[in-house]
Computed example of a mutant assay.
Amino acid sequence: MGGIDLLGIPVPDAGPVFLVALAVHIVAGVTCVAFGAVSALSAKGGVWHVRSGRVYLCGLGAVFASMAVLSGIRWRENAHLFAIGCLAFTSALTGYLNRRLRPLLHIAGMGTSYIALLTGFYVDNGATLPVWDRLPGWSYWVLPSLLGLPLIARAIWRRRPVKTTTS
């Protein structure tokens, strides 16, 4: 199969359905990165947090659906990306469904989904990106977690319920 070059990133030419799914995937992925960051950095429970979180979740649904199409067309090359996508979407749904009753699970789920989203991107594209192309392949799998997990732990620590003692 031949390929095309998209801003320096090689893209397999796997037919028109693949290219349409890839276009949806890219737009949805960029949306997720932007709105996920806005939600994470905004006041919890505030308008920006809630709205950007909803956009993130919808975008991740589009990333998941397009990823399923892309993986179905090129399963041998993309099975590992399918697994990462399943983790990202499952984590986000877990976080979303626990937003009110279990806020710490909400933080963990949404944060983990963002890490998985970035991990999938770097695993698939890291070797073609400036700076990342100098790193060993294993780092694409590990660096998003090394950077993201401490941030999730900090957010959980700050939101944990403080138990008071009564005398």
Rank of each mutant, 00 (worst) to 15 (best):
A127N: 12
A23I: 07
L60I: 01
V69G: 07
G111I: 03
G111R: 00
A28P: 06
H25V: 02
L105G: 08
L104V: 10
F82A: 15
V131R: 11
L135K: 02
G8Q: 07
S42R: 12
H25L: 05
G53R: 05
A83K: 08
I115N: 09
L105M: 06
L22F: 08
G109S: 08
G29H: 02
A65H: 01
L22D: 10
V27F: 10
L93H: 06
A83L: 11
K44N: 04
G59Q: 10
D13V: 01
L129A: 07
G61D: 08
V123Y: 06
W75Q: 05
A108G: 05
T119V: 07
A88S: 14
G126M: 06
V47Y: 01
F35I: 11
I73E: 14
Y96N: 11
H106G: 02
Y140D: 15
T90P: 02
R74Y: 01
G59A: 13
S139P: 14
R74P: 01
G85W: 00
L105K: 06
L81D: 13
A28W: 02
Y56M: 06
F64P: 03
P12Y: 02
L70Q: 08
V55D: 09
W75V: 09
P136K: 10
A34L: 07
A23V: 07
H106E: 05
R51F: 05
F89V: 05
M67N: 15
T112Y: 00
A65L: 08
A62F: 12
V69K: 04
K44G: 03
G29A: 10
A116P: 08
G15C: 15
A23D: 05
L41Q: 05
C32P: 13
S52N: 12
L81W: 02
G61N: 07
